[in-house]
Amino acid sequence: MLEARLEQADLLKKVVDAIKDLVQDCNFDCNDSGVALQAMDNSHVALVSMMLKAESFSPYRCDRNVALGVNLTSLTKVLRAAQNEDILTLKAEDAPDVLNLVFENTDSDRLSEYDLKLMDIDQEHLGIPDTEYAATISLPSVEFRRICVDLMALSESVSIETSKDGIKFSCAGDIGNGAVTLRPNTNVEKPDQNVEIELTEPVALTFSLKYLVNFCKAAGLSKTVKLCLSNEVPLLVEYALAGSSYLRFYLAPKIGD
């Protein structure tokens, strides 16, 4: 059986909220190392890869590998019943029809129990190779969100160019052009505000802003976001979670002249 207890329901609520507009039905693959999810959007342009490591739960028990096929809209309805600070426990049998969710508020001695019906999902899995990216940029997640939202007002696409001097986001639209350049900067007192650039070669790629703005719904999960780029490979956008868990998004580039 599976039994996984999260100190705060907040984490799962935010993760599901961040991905539910991108992917609808997906398997939560549970094994002794944790709970993983990989799913592509309908157009096969963006991919979500989530890993909640066993260490992120306390306790965590998973006797047999089990795939929990979940409709995220339905899961959202159930998670709405959990307060952010509730203790959340996920439970499932070895061959489950339902996922049992328990929310506990230790202050008020309230215990809520929900069973979510599971579904059989035949999910395509993609092998994601380990990649040495040409450019890795770390920046505040709210800054990245602001840039994507601002540029989307002008255009559907953004060009991202990185050099040792900085990272430039630019777009061209019917009403005009826009560009935001961030230079590396270190703030000792507020390390969350740092912009860090590691570069082995310059990169220039174009991406759909609609997807990037969607990824930015995860900004509440982490104060910083990591962008990993290499020419002509999908962009990796990573939100690191506590206990080396993560929420990653991959986005195929736009290719052409």
């Binding site: 157009s43 759909s208 991959y250 195929a252 002249d257």
Partner: peptide, 14 residues
Amino acid sequence: TSQQARLEGFFKPI
């Protein structure tokens, strides 16, 4: 104009 690539062009199904 540029064309949107799909993920399968980069990642192989397993």
